[in-house]
Design a protein around this nucleic acid. Structure first.
Lengths: 341, 341
DNA sequence: TCCAAAAACGAAATCGGTTTCGAAAATATT
DNA sequence: AATATTTTCGAAACCGATTTCGTTTTTGGA
């Protein structure tokens, strides 16, 4: 039977105040009555209504999860999904559950701030990788604690986590350089993506710092971070009539996979004709042919950091800030080796 | 500024009842005052508190999402993630948001029913692929509308969606047969998994119906549906000293991928030495080497069906039941062809 | 112009909790 | 035993909405 605090109080012969105090371990209730009431609570499996509790306390123990941007980066992108998985687990340990806002237009799409108020979330995490949009900025500037994943939030109750994209790019270029490659290309996502832009900028910087010459013809872009974008981008490069780079850095593993498909289709061999490095280190890297050399983002750590930062923000033990985590080169087959390449 | 119904009422010079009626389009309020109030609502961006609303109406517009079972089938399994993605999208269209219960032990783990009451969800979806456990049964037997994904819920307010696992197996066997294979093996998940068991049973039945002989040595099992399980299962078969099957059906694509890794490691060629068919048709099938022949489950349709069934259950327009969707053979490279094989 | 009927509005109870503050009970002090 | 102090408990206001039902206002008809 559906229980509520009043029924528990009646069954125990105490007032609702007393039951409430027991549930929230106040000190002004005797051990004797506490035990009696607890037994009844156990028997009945009573769990206080979160709505009522939220209404009274203004704390919901709920964290809002927002997939921002037009890109269909919902549960489909392996990188974000893994970060989210780690985040969820950690947030659970900290005592919070997650609520996912649906993005459907008819719900005054994009008005994230009012949706946070509507659900009274204690904080939220925004998953993006795209440029800032107005709806996000409103949230960022509000007093609701927010953590961006791959999104630079700078509000007074905000913070963010991401990998060091400049370092990602420089590790790539260094690896290519050591393997003897001098003609380097880049495949990025849309110009709306901060992440892609940062990797591109880092790539350019690294190429120059190694004294190599840049060939802008070897820079191509897709519409998102997915496989088909990598494919079409590479096709465009192939059909451009320009010469081909000997090594290509793709801003995501899926982009790399798509590029490889286009290359193979053209009869080119990986890594003999073109070497490829991806980014993220998603699971699939291990199963592809060739297996994909990539830069690993520490997804588990990103999720845990996001959770702890958010927790601290919610409990006023922090003023936000950011964590940038170290990437790591994972060498597999798609670049060959000095000897073979 | 944080708004509430009382402030809106004051600003508009009406009572809170009137504001509420407007928000819920009652007919007993004049056009004139409706317009005046609506303007203020728009200006202030007021959105009624879901907690208060839930408390008053007993409807939260929230759907609980439960990943059941010990297996770590959270956001990590590509198949479930894709079904979930489609489900979320459809549920959003129907006006619901999703809440994910954290599974952490300390929150009286597994007591899904009381957590549903706690959050006052209107319904929930249970994602599993494992055998029924007591905590799930409690929920199934309750009056809370539930839909199982790959989990046969039979309560009076429950239903489920899944693919036709017998048909999946028979399509596999038929394909193998037509390619000339007579010695067939199977890689499944743990014995706890209903799904795996159904595919195995269907496989056995199909093998027999084609008049082939069963070799139980060629049946191996992992602990879950993931890649590493497929790898260790296949290693066990390899090291068993028994002869090898010419063709293997794996109960998931990831299991198939793991098996292929073990096979390759042993110097065996796919499909020349061993043909493989997976199940699910996850994205990665397209990128592997060889690309993976598999049985496609219509994940988008499964998600949409689950959403609609749940919606009907919530609105008393249905008494549950089940939908079993048709699988489809997707031919890629991992089986070769009649001519080459 | 007057009255009946219909339309528009609002007071108040309610949902299930929390929290303050005063009263009652238990214990300690003299 | 009387009083002071400390513990324990509960009444009641409150959180922000919904909904019933009675009252007021408007409209329409004669």
């Amino acid at each position: 039977m559906q229980m509520n605090i009043k029924k528990i109080a009646e069954m125990a012969g105490v007032s609702v105040s007393t039951v409430s105090k027991i549930m929230n371990n106040y000190s002004d209730v005797s051990e004797k009555t506490k035990k009696r009431v607890m037994e009844i609570i156990e028997q009945t499996g009573y769990s206080p209504s979160n709505s009522a509790k939220t209404l009274a306390t203004k704390k919901s123990n709920l964290i809002g999860v927002i997939f921002a941007g037009e890109l269909n980066v919902e549960f489909t992108h392996p990188f974000f999904v893994e970060v989210l998985n780690s985040f969820k687990k950690q947030m659970g340990v900290l005592g919070y559950d997650l609520i996912f806002f649906s993005n459907e237009k008819f719900i005054s799409s994009g008005d994230y701030y009012s949706r946070c108020l509507h659900f009274n979330v204690d904080g939220c995490v925004i998953i993006s990788g795209q440029k800032m949009e107005p709806a996000i900025r409103d949230l960022d500037m509000s007093s609701i604690p927010c953590i961006g994943v791959d999104l630079e939030l700078r509000g007074k109750k905000s913070g963010y986590v991401m990998s060091d994209n400049v370092q990602i790019a420089s590790k790539v270029v260094e690896h290519f350089y050591l393997l003897g490659h001098r003609e380097l290309g880049f495949i990025g996502s849309t110009a709306d993506s901060d992440i892609s832009n940062q990797r591109e900028a880092g790539f350019v910087k690294a190429v120059e710092s190694f004294g190599l010459t840049l060939n802008r013809n070897w820079f191509v872009h897709g519409d998102d971070f997915f496989e088909s974008s990598g494919y079409t981008a590479m096709r465009r490069l192939l059909e451009s009539g320009s010469s081909m780079p000997k090594a290509v850095f793709a801003a995501s593993d899926l982009l790399a996979l798509g590029a490889i498909r286009a290359l193979k289709e053209q009869g080119l061999r990986i890594p003999e004709d073109v070497a490829i490095i991806g980014c993220d280190d998603i699971e699939a890297c291990k199963y592809t042919s060739p297996t994909l050399t990539t830069i690993r983002q520490n997804k588990e750590r990103l999720g845990v950091l996001a959770a702890h930062m958010l927790y601290d923000l919610i409990n006023n033990q922090s003023d936000g800030g950011s964590f940038v985590v170290e990437p790591a080169l994972i060498v597999r087959e798609s670049c060959g080796s000095r000897l073979s390449g």
